[in-house]
Design a protein around this nucleic acid. Structure first.
Ligand SMILES: [Zn+2]
Ligand SMILES: [Zn+2]
Ligand SMILES: [Zn+2]
Ligand SMILES: [Zn+2]
Lengths: 132, 132
DNA sequence: TAACGCTATGTAATAATATAACATTTACAT
DNA sequence: ATGTAAATGTTATATTATTACATAGCGTTA
């Protein structure tokens, strides 16, 4: 069990919004949605995002510049992330596959590099979009 | 053997620059470096980058918004990319490991999704930075 | 309590990254 | 030579992210 973090006010507002969203949210869309709660500036959003990423509550989908709530609430895998992304409807889901994460966490090549983090993004067509 | 693409003028100028660079280059740094050759606007750079990515001559390092020449000249793997990134010196190199690419290309989970592309980024400390 | 360190917040300005819209030119196959 | 797709040129603008500086809250401990 990971230590339960207490979120600050802005962090909680922004996490709740992302967590409720069915799709990854972009920073300025987040900003727009929380302005009525008093968060008015980009920096306030980015600071909260940075913190939420650091503690593993959300992840950034790098290829989309968007943010998604962690879908593996019971485990700390912010340093080992994998996503599947539909290139048609842009649906994104976090892959939670212990064989995959074991394989990648143990991956070593000849570079002499010690990896402590990875991010993997798969692209394709989701079930729905495939059958269209 | 992949079909040899003929690069257009702008594409060639920009590819040569990236290919000579020891590190990934950012779009506006590319722009700055090719202005003396008549490429004056961001869009000219981005168009060439898009094309070069499409044909697999370069890759985008998503976590860095930077572009690197493909280091696997003999094979077409623009749809299956893996990189190792040093978080200290920002050195980036393309991983060419057939077991890894086979494993990931064949990866399937319960989502019913057919993947046709992936991008993997490993982070850590390179040999040099580790020994400091 | 007061002083301190640390985290979070507020605000304005600006930097960095990327695309839209439109006009023109080039390559090249018929 | 004509049609068509690809590439280019140009201006403006959209989107994403950070710098710099000031202020406020909160727990520790002198
Ligand atoms: Zn997660
Ligand atoms: Zn889909
Ligand atoms: Zn490559
Ligand atoms: Zn290094």
């Amino acid at each position: 069990m990971q230590k339960q973090q207490t979120l600050s006010r802005n962090q909680k507002i922004i996490f709740d919004l992302i967590d409720k969203s069915p799709e990854p949210m972009k920073a300025y869309s987040i900003l727009f949605n929380v302005q009525k709660k008093g968060i008015k500036a980009p920096l306030q959003v980015y600071r909260a995002l940075d913190k939420l990423i650091e503690i593993g509550k959300i992840h950034k989908i790098e290829s989309r510049n968007a943010f998604i709530a962690c879908q593996n609430s019971s485990c700390q895998i912010s340093k080992a992330t994998a996503f599947s992304i539909c290139e048609s409807c842009e649906n994104v889901s976090e892959i939670s596959n212990s064989k995959l994460s074991k394989y990648l966490s143990n991956f070593a090549d000849m570079s002499g590099m010690k990896y402590n983090k990875y991010n993997l993004e798969f692209f394709g067509l989701c079930k729905k979009c495939k059958s269209k």
